[in-house]
Simulated assay, not measured.
Amino acid sequence: MERMNESKKDYLFRVRNKDKADATVVAFVFSPHIVKDRRFYSPCKTIYLKYKEYCLENALKPLSSWQFKKNMQLLGFIYKKSHRFYAGYHRDRVTTAFKNIAFKVADCKI
């Protein structure tokens, strides 16, 4: 049993620079429908649209997509560019994604 616990990997992603990033982005990242895990990739466009939706629901002013990207990078999320990521079998291909972030399955609308 001890061996199983030792071999278990820690996939939890730890957010950095919370005090330097915009408060709306920090609140979004720590909202209950977000999962921070080092195994996940999520399309940048999807993350930004969910962020804007979150801001509207909470009467916050969303940042521009460029400012949002910079804040996500400041928090330690990796912006992957020029790679092919797929959002599902019949979804369009995505050329940019954030690493270490995803949505909880129950919150995804397909």
Rank of each mutant, 00 (worst) to 15 (best):
Arg3Thr: 14
His83Met: 13
Lys70Asn: 04
Lys61Ile: 10
Ser42Pro: 00
Phe40Gln: 02
Thr95Trp: 09
Tyr41Lys: 13
Ala102Asn: 12
Glu57Ile: 05
Ala87Asp: 14
His33Gly: 09
Asp107Lys: 15
Cys108Val: 15
Asp37Arg: 07
Ser42Trp: 07
Lys50Tyr: 05
Glu53Arg: 13
Lys109Arg: 14
Ala87Ser: 15
Pro32Arg: 14
His33Thr: 07
Leu75Trp: 08
Ala97Tyr: 10
Ala21Ile: 00
Pro32Ala: 10
Thr24Asn: 08
Phe40Asp: 00
Asn100Trp: 08
Ala27Thr: 11
Val94Leu: 11
Thr96Val: 03
Ser42Phe: 04
Val94Gly: 09
Ser82Ala: 10
Asp10Val: 14
Ser31Tyr: 03
Phe98Gln: 01
Lys8Asn: 14
Phe13Trp: 04
Phe13Asp: 03
Thr95Ala: 06
Glu6Pro: 07
Lys61Asp: 12
Gln73Gly: 09
Val25Gly: 02
His90Pro: 05
Tyr51Asp: 02
Asn71Ile: 00
Gly76Ser: 08
Arg38Met: 03
Phe103Ile: 06
Lys20Thr: 05
Asn5Ser: 14
Arg91Asp: 12
His33Glu: 10
Cys108Trp: 06
Val25Pro: 04
Ser42His: 05
Tyr86Asn: 13
Tyr41His: 13
Ser31Cys: 07
Cys55Gln: 07
Thr95Asp: 09
Lys36Pro: 00
Asn5Gly: 08
Tyr89Glu: 14
Cys44His: 01
Tyr11Trp: 14
Pro32Lys: 15
Thr96Phe: 01
Lys80Ile: 13
Ala106Pro: 05
Tyr54Trp: 13
His33Ile: 04
His83Glu: 12
Ala106Gly: 09
Tyr79Val: 06
Leu49Tyr: 12
Tyr54Glu: 06
Ala106Trp: 11
Ala59His: 13
Leu75Phe: 09
Lys80Ser: 07
Ile34Lys: 08
Leu12Asn: 15
Cys108His: 05
Lys109Cys: 13
Ala87Val: 12
Ile34Leu: 09
Ala27Asp: 14
Arg38Tyr: 01
Arg84Ile: 07
Asn71His: 05
Phe103Asn: 13
Ala102Ile: 01
Phe30Val: 00
Thr95Arg: 12
Val94Lys: 15
Met72Ser: 12
Arg93Thr: 06
Ala21Phe: 00
Lys20Ala: 05
Phe98Tyr: 11
Lys8Trp: 08
Tyr89Ala: 11
Glu57Met: 12
Lys61Leu: 10
Ala87Tyr: 04
Val94His: 15
Pro62Ser: 02
Asn100Cys: 07
Phe85Ser: 08
Asn5Ala: 15
Thr95Leu: 09
Ala27Cys: 08
Ala102Arg: 10
Asp107Thr: 12
Met72Ile: 11
Tyr48Gly: 03
Phe77Tyr: 10
